[in-house]
């Protein structure tokens, strides 16, 4: 699969990244290399092999439904770039 400039632009938009012209070019090339590298896997014959859903063969890991203490609010908010005493502050979100 070829990585075009449009692919990178779309991925950047979805990740909310603003890339400069130079960055776009560089990313197009680098992403192309990464995908090309992974593409080598397609050479393996997987005929009749069940798709793998998870890399670790462990299932049914559960925790009991018991409430434990949460973080104190002050601590939870302490790393936020912007907050008031109640919550995280972000640029206005209007509508949905």
């Amino acid at each position: 699969m070829a990585i075009t400039r449009e692919t990178v632009e779309k991925v950047a938009l979805l990740a909310r990244l603003k890339l400069s012209e130079t960055e776009l070019e560089k990313m197009t090339e680098q992403m192309g290399q990464i995908v090309g590298y992974v593409d080598q896997l397609s050479e393996v014959d997987t005929e009749g092999v069940e798709p793998m859903a998870h890399a670790v063969e462990v299932t049914n890991v559960f925790a009991e439904d018991v409430v434990a203490e949460s973080l104190p609010r002050e601590q939870a908010l302490s790393n936020a770039p912007s907050s008031n005493e109640r919550g995280y502050l972000v640029p206005a979100v209007l509508g949905d």
């Binding site: 559960f62 409430v67 949460s70 973080l71 609010r73 939870a76 109640r86 919550g87």
Partner: peptide
Amino acid sequence: RCSTQFGAEPNTQTCPVCTGLPGTLPVMNA
């Protein structure tokens, strides 16, 4: 294991897992 109780003061029922801090791991509630 944070509480799901409705109506609590904002941001008093969170922890590193549900706030998405790096290095945390989710475990399914049985």
